[in-house]
Amino acid sequence: MSVESQDLNLCANDKRGKHQLGAGAGLVGWDEVTQGIVLTSFDGDASDIAHKKAEERNYSEFNSYTASVASWRVQKPVFNRDICIDCQNCWVWCPDTSIISRDKQMLGIDYDHCKGCEVCVEVCPTNPKSLLMFNEHADLDESLAAWPEKKKKEKK
């Protein structure tokens, strides 16, 4: 099975996942802010966001897009492009907006925001699955090389 190495920063805005949660963006403490605080999700023009992809948006420091929850994971999903049929099941059900799809194609996983819940693996319909869980520290190419073969249907 030929497998291309994956670009982990695919479609990533350069602000993605810079901050640790809790560390904040070097701002005043929650007990020092004025009541009725407004946090802006974008710097500058925020109109027409629905028609801008993540990589085209001017995220502010307050946007959780700039934070990372990668440390929550024990296991990570690995994506195998060779088997994927671009059904977008993983995209619609990922609770953490971590499936990167562009122009109807599944491209990969946003490892700054993925929490490793395994929902995407569960809903992937291919045989073998195009997404599988591996240890967080597993090498991506080695994981892909260890991909299982197609499973025969069990007789009922």
């Binding site: 959780s64 929550w72 671009d86 977008q88 619609v92 609770p95 907006t97």
Partner: peptide, 29 residues
């Protein structure tokens, strides 16, 4: 689903809902 997936999410990651929480699936929809 393919056409639906061309939308640009306006609900961002790194919220702190539990892994696998359905609340965010519904909000994203």
């Amino acid at each position: 689903l393919k056409e639906f997936s061309t939308n640009n999410d306006r609900f961002e990651g790194a919220h702190t809902l539990c892994p696998g929480c359905a609340h965010s699936m519904i909000v994203r929809e």
